[in-house]
Design a protein around this nucleic acid. Structure first.
Lengths: 341, 341
DNA sequence: CCCACACGCGAGAGCGCTCTCACCTCCCCC
DNA sequence: GGGGGAGGTGAGAGCGCTCTCGCGTGTGGG
């Protein structure tokens, strides 16, 4: 079983095809500058021997790995409660695969891991990194920049010193929030509340900002800080109903919180959307379509976001490319109207 | 930016410490057989120079990569609708990290990718593979076995020729289903229905089998085939109510389907659990806790499953270990009682 | 006091590949 | 018909590391 079959080397292929190693190498790497009959002979030898290049040997000399690290910080919280990162990974994977790059996944758990990740990235195992760091005070972005490896961030990172050149991809959290709130206003609602996410995350902060853009003059009691979870949404909704029993609309910072709010509203006998209209954020399908009534929410194209991150990184990695990547890309969101508002 | 700082080599460290390359190598790899003062000198030189071993060079000679591939087949369907794989990945990642192994993620999309994955695995980039393949007729397991690389499967794979030696880790789907159905029976329910998952997946087939173990004599009309989605759960529930309006309990093959069933029951004015008791499977938190009433369901420890898969693989990879890993590990499930049954 | 042996350390080969450079052919043009 | 060039091919060095082997030093026993 552990019988490692002696894999054929370039040398072996060369011998079989009756050419030099250099020629085989040329053929294997695209075949420019080799005459057709030889190409054919080499191809056949490769085929017959089942030759596969040794990546380690190749990397040793080229100093390329055709591999990209994806760093996901602090998965304990939000990450694994929803398909967000899975979708993102899928987008990233597709793009990387299309360009023959591998995806090395680095999940970090707490501060201890930071050093490990930094060391790995600095260790030259990968050509670049895609980093998801949700928290404003996360030291990881700084560490990674120190590693001196091309990096693209997922989500707007918190601002640190010397962050001007940071490349990131984010959804238009602020614009999406504005659209959600305007939709509620357009329904004639006048007492629109906002259940926020954890405000140490840029996405939550940006959504709150969007809410304020439209309802800057709102009663401060209509804004309740929460945590992106159903339980948190429930608590926030109860608080809201206690503070302002006349509330007639809620914009929750994500679908999970909205689902909690919905449950409290029903429990308290408020009809949705007749008495209170509810809008979520994310369009996390199993949740948004699973609530009763189904949730009106703001959709972000997560998979596309992943794809663009990968594309941006690959562009920076490509030595041939004209090197002027945008610093940040903000993807549009769309309002998905279902039954709750 | 692309200014690749010339990374220090073993040679450089050796020169600085005034020893030979061999000695530095020994120290870096554990330091056995090197006297303390020298170890100290080398350590300092490493520190000062910020030396990090070149993994490519090392792999070239050791033929080890300290990297494991995680292959997830057909992510289009179930995979990305729920946190299942994310949790699994987390478990895997933790275990691999603890043993200084890297995780290379391979997501496949349709048949074309199979060849790519097989080539990659056969290409000797990784030491082993963890493979998730849900479908009975998936050709991937066969291809991978052909690649001759140590592999552990997640979930019981469908049976192919020569599968005796397959190592896999799975939840006790059958036992969990039995427990769910017995719980319903213990509640005094006599007309217990089952909404299945897609029966070409072993997990769904095993859950059905568990149902049959307890209710082998049930009216066949009480079993409706479905697809693990909320929409599918809705359709199945409607069908069920049409066939047997007197149904008083439903065991849905997963939480998503259960959430759909719940919605139909409410819509049709059946009280849960009074009129109809409902049990799900998975304990997918955002769903199970997000339904109304909250879902009684069968929990599987997904993260642990990932961890065990990784552990099993690492054990097979470890040349020093006494080599007798179990062929299959089946993890217990537990019934989580909430409001729906 | 000398020999045997173990242990610590260095020299050097070689892992499989790419890439430069020199050579050799063949063709075109004067 | 000969010289120059372009393009195709091979030889060989070297990427950074590990590992075997042999030598030198220190220790214990006869």
């Amino acid at each position: 079983m552990t019988e490692t079959a002696p894999r054929p080397t370039l040398e072996a292929v060369a011998a079989r095809a009756g050419v030099s190693r250099a020629t085989v190498s040329r053929v294997v790497n695209g075949g420019d500058g080799v005459r057709e009959p030889l190409v054919e002979r080499v191809r056949r030898a490769v085929e017959e021997l089942g030759y596969v290049p040794n990546q380690a040997a190749r990397s040793l000399v080229t100093r390329r790995h055709d591999a990209v690290a994806v760093v996901i910080a602090e998965p304990e919280t939000r990450v694994f409660a929803d398909p967000f990162f899975a979708l993102q990974l899928r987008g990233i994977s597709k793009e990387l695969t299309a360009h023959d790059n591998q995806l090395v996944l680095l999940l970090t758990e707490g501060r201890d891991d930071h050093a490990r990740v930094a060391r790995y990235l600095a260790g030259g195992h990968v050509d670049g990194a895609l980093v998801f760091s949700l928290h404003l005070d996360d030291p990881l972005p700084g560490l990674i920049r120190g590693a001196g490896i091309p990096t693209v961030f997922g989500g707007r990172p918190g601002w640190h010193d010397g962050d001007e050149g940071v490349v990131f991809v984010d959804s238009d959290n602020r614009g999406g929030a504005r659209e959600a709130v305007r939709h509620l206003a357009g329904l004639g609602r006048t007492r629109i509340a906002h259940i926020t996410g954890p405000l140490d995350q840029t996405s939550a902060a940006d959504r709150l900002q969007g809410f304020r853009d439209v309802r800057g003059d709102a009663d401060p009691r209509l804004v309740v800080e929460s945590d992106f979870t159903p339980g948190g949404g429930e608590r926030a909704m109860r608080e809201l109903l206690a503070r302002r029993p006349d509330v007639d609309a809620v914009f929750a910072a994500n679908d999970l919180a909205a689902s909690g709010a919905l449950r409290v509203l029903r429990e308290q006998g408020r009809r949705v959307p007749e008495d209170v209209a509810v809008v979520g954020f994310d369009d996390m399908l199993p949740v948004a379509e699973g609530t009763d009534p189904q949730l009106t929410t703001v959709r972000q194209d997560i998979e596309e976001m992943g794809r663009i991150m990968a594309r941006l990184l690959l562009r920076r990695l490509d030595p041939s490319g004209t090197d002027d990547p945008p610093a940040g890309v903000v993807l549009p969101t769309t309002l998905v109207r279902r039954a709750s508002a």
